[in-house]
Amino acid sequence: MLVLGIESSCDETGVALVRAEGPAAPPRLLAHALHSQIDMHQAYGGVVPELASRDHIRRVLPLTRQVLAQAGCGLEDIDTIAYTRGPGLAGALLVGAGLACALGAALDRPVVGVHHLEGHLLSPFLSADPPEFPFVALLVSGGHTQLMRVEDVGRYELLGETIDDAAGEAFDKSAKLLGLGYPGGPALARLAEFGDPDVFTLPRPLLHSGTLDFSFAGLKTAVWTQVRKLGDRVCEQDRAHLAASTQAAIVDVLVKKSLAALKQTGLSRLVVAGGVGANRRLRAMLDAQAQRRGWRVHYPELHLCTDNGAMIALAAAMRLQREPQRARRDYAFDIAPRWDLAAA
C-alpha cells in the first residue's frame, strides 16, 4: 500500500510517500518534501492565517510533484491519499483536504483524514529506533502539551494535559518578552546555551500538584516580571541567563511529569513527539533519567519533529493496517479545526 500524505495545518506545507507492506511490517518512508513559512511570517511576529492558507495553495502541488519524482512513482501508483483533517487553522486545513479529495476523485482512490497529533505521536515509528506498544507519549506540539497512555494505534488514554498555555506557547511567549524573533522557541533555546539556568528563580507550575496536568501561564508572567525588573539595564548576558532559566523551568516540569506518568502506568517506554521534542536540554535530561532507571525514550528524527507530511502518511498507513474501512470514497471536504485525539 502506497500512501501519499499531505500536511497543511499551520505554517508548514508537507508532502510525503510512505509504503506499508502488511500488519507485521513497519511502514517505510520513500520520499518527503517540506516548505516552511517562517521567513514569510517573521515580519508579523507570528502566523497570519490568511497568508498561511495562500502559501499552502502555492506550494502543495509542486511539493507533490517533487515527492513523486524522488520516489520514482506516478500518480497512478498511489493507493491511498491521507491529509491532516485537524486540529489546525481552518483555511490551511482546507487546502490539504481539497487537494486530497480532488486527487482521490480524479484517481478513484480512497482518502483518509488524519489527526495532526496522532501523526506526531506515531512519528518515531519512522526512526532508526522505533518504539514498541504500549508506551507513554509526551506530546509537545504548538498549543498542545499532553501525556497519553498508548496501547496501540487508535487506543489512547489521556493522562494529563495543559490547563492554559502549552510548553511551546511558553517558549514562544517568553521569547517575545525577551525581544527574540519568530519562531521564538528555537531562538530562546539558542540564547539559553550562553546563560546560567540558576541565575533567576522561576516557578515550576503544578510540579507538586499530584496530577499529570500542566500549566505554563504563570511561568510566562514570572518571565515578564523579571524583564520589567531588569528594565533598561538589561544586557545580552542577562537575557541569556533569563532564557536559560526559562528553558530549565519548562524542561523540569516536562521531565518530572513524564517520569511520574511512567511510574503511574508501570510502563518503561516513553515517546516524545512534537516540535518541543527537538529541544536538546529536554532530550539530555530525559535520556539521563531513562538510563538511570533502565527505561527507554524514543524520539522522531530531528527533521521530522516539526509538522510534516511523512507523519500524516505514516499515521494513515498504520491506521489502515488495522482498520481498512477508515478509507472512504465520498470525497467530501471534511476538516476539524478542533478535534479531540481520543475521538479520532
Rank of each mutant, 00 (worst) to 15 (best):
L242S: 07
T145W: 04
L206P: 04
P26K: 10
E132P: 01
D330Q: 08
V15Y: 00
V251F: 10
K263D: 01
L121C: 08
A31S: 09
V255E: 05
D287F: 01
A69G: 01
G96N: 03
E301Q: 15
F133D: 05
P300S: 14
L267K: 04
V223F: 00
L138D: 08
L207C: 12
R65I: 01
V199N: 00
L147A: 09
D164M: 03
L202R: 00
E21F: 15
L302I: 11
A336F: 15
T211W: 15
D287E: 13
V136D: 02
I78C: 04
R65D: 15
A105R: 07
W295M: 02
R65V: 09
I312P: 08
L138T: 11
L99I: 11
S123H: 05
V255A: 02
L219H: 06
V136G: 02
G294Y: 03
D330C: 06
A25Q: 15
T84F: 05
L121K: 09
T145S: 12
K263Q: 09
R190H: 01
M1H: 03
R296G: 01
K220W: 02
L286W: 00
G274Q: 08
L94R: 08
G119I: 03
F200C: 11
A317K: 14
D213E: 15
D129I: 00
V297T: 00
Q291W: 05
G168A: 10
A16I: 06
G74E: 05
Y44T: 14
I38P: 01
A310P: 05
A166S: 14
T84Y: 05
L4K: 11
V47L: 06
A189Q: 01
A166T: 12
E76I: 04
R283N: 05
V271M: 07
A288H: 12
V136N: 03
P26Q: 10
D340T: 10
G309Y: 06
E151S: 11
P62V: 07
A128I: 06
D196W: 02
D55S: 12
L177S: 07
A69F: 00
A105T: 02
